[in-house]
């Protein structure tokens, strides 16, 4: 049973992660705040309560794997990695600069990142490969994969979805950040995904739908996924793009635009 104080702790942590995302993007002058903020609660809960990992030993063979398939939201990944101790928080201010360990999209030069991403649609396949390795080596680590809603328009995702079910990869838990927006507008207008849950179900997945900003629901979904046998799980998390900063919420422009200095100040005030 999750205690109230643990939930509070995670919520505070998520707020801190959001602050880091805003600061890092403002400093970089480019990047993707909207989808980083919508998935913050999910990935904060994952890294600080669910994932079996050790920042002092990033290559620990038995660690759980996390892969961010929607690679453009790496500011979120970098913030949780820094907060977890994989590297100094000061590194965050080098985001997107020449020679930085924090590239514009995920790259292996970042401690804690195993496989590059950024070209959408490939991450669930990468996760499947990791899950097969666990089975071959008879290890019980789990594999988590964050997908974007626009991203699942890629055909590769559905090749992977079919294969994860075929190989009975019950050590995989995908997380769909369903914030409803992509670069060109509303997902339902650009290329409708509905019925999303029915699609994953039809592909043979254990499918859960939650409020992606409710820590209790997030933790219980991760917990439920661990108990599922013989099939992969997906958490369809209904989220708000730009969550936590009112003037960014559900504003498509902030998919791929960094906040200005003034906007960042305003955002950080909200996140105090």
């Amino acid at each position: 049973m999750v205690e109230e104080k643990d939930i509070k702790h995670l919520e505070e942590k998520a707020k801190q992660i959001r602050r880091l995302i805003i600061e890092m993007l403002a400093k970089a002058g480019s990047g993707h705040p909207g989808g980083s903020l919508s998935a913050t609660d999910l990935i904060t809960a994952l890294y600080f309560s669910v994932l079996k990992h050790n920042s002092k030993d990033p290559k620990w063979p038995d660690r759980d794997r996390f892969h961010m398939s929607k690679g453009h939201c790496c500011p979120l990944w970098y913030a949780v990695l820094a907060e977890s101790g994989y590297f100094s928080v000061d590194e965050l201010w080098t985001l997107r600069q020449l020679g930085s360990i924090l590239q514009g999209h995920p790259d292996r030069r970042t401690p804690g990142i195993d496989v590059a991403s950024g070209s959408l649609g490939q991450g669930l396949s990468v996760s499947l490969g990791m899950s097969l390795a666990a089975k071959l080596d008879k290890k019980d680590y789990r594999v988590y994969c964050l997908l974007g809603d626009g991203e699942i328009q890629e055909g590769n995702v559905w090749e992977a979805a079919m294969a994860c079910a075929h190989f009975k990869s019950d050590n995989i838990c995908a997380i769909l950040d369903y914030n409803g927006f992509q670069i060109d507008g509303k997902v339902c207008e650009v290329m409708n995904l509905e019925p999303v849950a029915a699609k994953w179900k039809a592909f043979g997945w254990h499918t859960m739908e939650i409020d992606g900003h409710n820590m209790k629901e997030i933790l219980s979904a991760f917990d439920e996924a661990k108990k599922v046998k013989g099939k992969p799980s997906i958490i369809i998390a209904h989220t708000v793009k730009g969550k936590g900063v009112t003037f960014m919420e559900n504003v498509c422009d902030f998919h791929g635009r960094a906040p200005t200095k003034d906007e960042a100040e305003k955002a950080l005030k909200e996140l105090e």
């Binding site: 990468v126 490969g129 071959l136 090749e159 294969a163």
Partner: peptide
């Protein structure tokens, strides 16, 4: 047979999955 995986007619998935598996030391 335990170390062979047939991906069906889905080469894109196969290539990316190979990367994930190789990242675990294979």
């Amino acid at each position: 047979p335990e170390r062979f995986f047939n991906f069906g007619v889905a080469e894109q998935n196969m290539m990316a999955a190979a990367t994930g598996l190789a990242s675990c030391g294979k």
